[in-house]
Design a protein around this nucleic acid. Structure first.
Length: 548
RNA sequence: UGGGUAGUCGCCAAGCGGUAAGGCACUGGACUUUGACUCCUGUAUGCGAAGGUUCGAAUCCUUCCUACCCAGCCA
């Protein structure tokens, strides 16, 4: 055994447990309910369980926790499988389904009944709430608590046969109505649900509750460490109670909880996500502003960046709210070495080089530091475009771009000097007349003057139009429960329909490149959904950092 | 007011009785044909608070304070 370098407290617990209980194969699992889409918080949870399994050479399962026919759907199963594949987490050949264990779980329930540890209860929901007591007052026993195993068996069978209506009777574990932990006050472990299940159809009309099903599912799969988020910490005694009451043999699973991950500027709960998508303000589950895996993917975030990010966060014991900037950092970090650098202008401003007649081709590096990316030729012509924001008629002293009478370098080309500003009737600048200095050619070593700055540009003869979409935080402040939709930052999406990008991008896209750095603008990805033969649509993945 | 979990820089987070790692963000500077990248630089005499034990405490003890979770026939 190699020396254990504990990554976090979960790792440490697993390591000790592995030694103490002589576990030779660590098995973990990720158990999503197929009632929504995976998101960054899921990736974080997956990474913890997957990471542990991988570290100990064990096994990692994907299991659909589908014991509630009211909420689950095959659509989500497919979506989750697709996202898992994209994330590249290997969970063996096939995913598992909790619903495949229906019969076994049912048999365990009858075992419990025979042991006198579970009973059928006729209390209504309201009555049960009353009997349960409160946080400070203990509960009292159900009048049905002492039914005989025989009677319970019969009643439970009636439930299974569909002879009992929903809400009329449930199966409860007989634990302790006086427990200070409300979870242990005779929890319901089976209820009647006559809804069609998306996989088992109407084969069953009773379904186990999470607290009963989960430990059994874990046990059946040989899961040794059932890692889940903090909200289940109060459930652990019940998890252990079930395992113990069932008198199971072999290595029993152990539940360990970790803190949830929250990100500033976004929400991750399925309920909120659904509300947002349903509001119609977003463009669906894969809206690039959403922290869903599909959204992040469409946004252009790489899985490498996601995993670097969640790994850096570690495994906290309490829930945390991490600054979104940290994710952005890892996105830039990942992309900067991977993608080529092209030039794009979001809001073009025409520039005419008055002293240039003949087109000249200049050599432009495809990457800011890595020569392996090669270079390309770009035409330097009389008519150019620059970024509207790179010109200012009355600049402040700190402005390091183009202004009247000042000189800047066009990247990889020449210095240009602005001599004349042409405006339309409204007084808006529509064109700049500039001269270039042939002596200042890029690479010539010219250093007699320093330009104000270096800006990017495009030749009017060598552009292709594209739509560029920029994103900001979906929420500027933590939204409250009832103000979720109202709290949406309506400026979170900005669309530039008149953006121009150098034509060479089309060639690179054909060669399979989807992500680029647009110099001085940021990292962008081709939007697969919106891009057509006629129209190129790009999403900004993340901007470049800027001190300006 | 019951039970549970947790409090280390603005945000994450190491630390596990020997004198406060690291990352993000931010500062200042160097470099620069991306105001990028990179590289330096600075940033908790302080670890929720107060006591105590100890030669020595973020680490052990006591009390207190704060936050989060639990009263679904959801997961």
């Amino acid at each position: 055994m190699s020396e254990n370098v504990a990554l976090n407290f979960v790792d440490r617990l697993v390591y000790e447990d592995k030694e103490n209980r002589n576990i030779d194969k660590v098995v973990t699992r990720f158990p999503p309910e197929p009632n929504g889409y995976l998101h960054i918080g899921s990736a974080y949870a997956i990474n913890i369980s997957y990471g542990i399994a991988k570290k100990y050479g064990g096994q990692f399962n994907l299991r659909f926790d589908d014991t509630n026919p009211m909420k689950e759907d095959m659509e989500y199963v497919h979506a989750i499988i697709e996202d898992m594949a994209w994330l590249g987490c290997d969970y063996g050949k096939e995913p598992f389904f909790g619903s495949d264990y229906s019969k076994q779980i049912f048999d365990y329930a009858t075992f419990l009944i025979r042991q006198g540890k579970a009973y059928v209860c006729d209390l209504t929901m309201e009555e049960m709430r009353t009997y349960r007591g409160t946080l400070t007052e203990s509960g009292k026993n159900s009048p049905y608590r002492d039914r005989s195993p025989e009677e319970n068996l019969k009643l439970f069978e009636d439930m299974r046969l569909g002879l009992v209506d929903e809400g009329v009777r449930v199966l409860r574990a007989k634990i302790d109505m006086e427990s200070p932990n409300l979870i242990l006050r005779d929890p319901v472990i089976y209820r009647v649900l006559k809804e069609k299940h998306y996989r088992t159809g109407s084969e069953w009309c009773i379904y186990p509750m999470y607290d009963f099903a989960h430990p059994i599912q874990d046990y059946i799969e040989g899961v040794t460490h059932s890692l889940c988020s903090n909200e289940f910490i109060n459930h652990r005694p019940l998890y252990d109670w079930v395992l113990d009451a069932l008198d199971l043999k072999g290595v029993l699973p152990r539940q360990i909880e970790f803190g949830r991950l929250n990100l500033t500027g976004v929400v991750t709960s399925k309920r909120y996500l659904k509300q947002l998508v349903d509001s119609g303000i977003l463009d669906g589950w894969d809206d690039p502003r959403l922290p869903t895996i599909k959204g992040l993917r469409r946004r252009g975030v790489t899985k490498e960046a996601i995993f670097d990010f969640v790994n850096e966060i570690g495994v906290p014991k309490t829930s945390t709210t991490v600054d979104y900037k940290m994710l952005e950092h890892f996105v830039r970090q990942d992309l900067k070495e991977k993608v080529m650098c092209l030039m794009m202008v979001q809001s073009p401003l025409k520039v005419v080089i008055t002293n240039l007649e003949e087109t000249e081709y200049v050599d432009v590096d495809n990457h800011f530091s890595n020569p392996e990316f090669g270079s390309r030729k770009l035409p330097f012509t009389k008519e150019l475009y620059i970024e509207r924001e790179d010109f200012c008629e009355q600049p402040s002293k700190k402005f390091k771009r183009l202004s009247p009478g000042e000189e800047v370098r066009l990247r990889s080309a020449y210095f240009i000097k602005c001599n004349e500003v042409i405006k339309d009737d409204q007084g808006e600048v529509v064109e700049l007349r500039c001269t270039y200095d042939p002596a200042t050619k890029s690479g010539s070593g010219f250093n007699e003057r320093k330009p104000k700055g270096t800006i990017h540009w495009l030749s009017a003869s060598d552009v292709t139009k594209c739509t560029v979409r920029l994103y900001e935080d979906l929420f500027l402040e933590e939204p409250s429960d009832d103000q979720l939709v109202e709290s949406i930052n309506m400026n979170s999406k900005k669309v530039y329909e008149d953006a121009l990008v150098e034509r060479s991008i089309l060639k690179f896209i054909d060669q399979g490149e989807k992500r680029f750095q647009f110099i001085r603008n940021g990292y962008y990805v081709v939007d697969k959904e919106l891009t057509t033969k006629e129209l190129l649509v790009m999403n900004q993945i993340v901007s470049l950092k800027s001190n300006f």
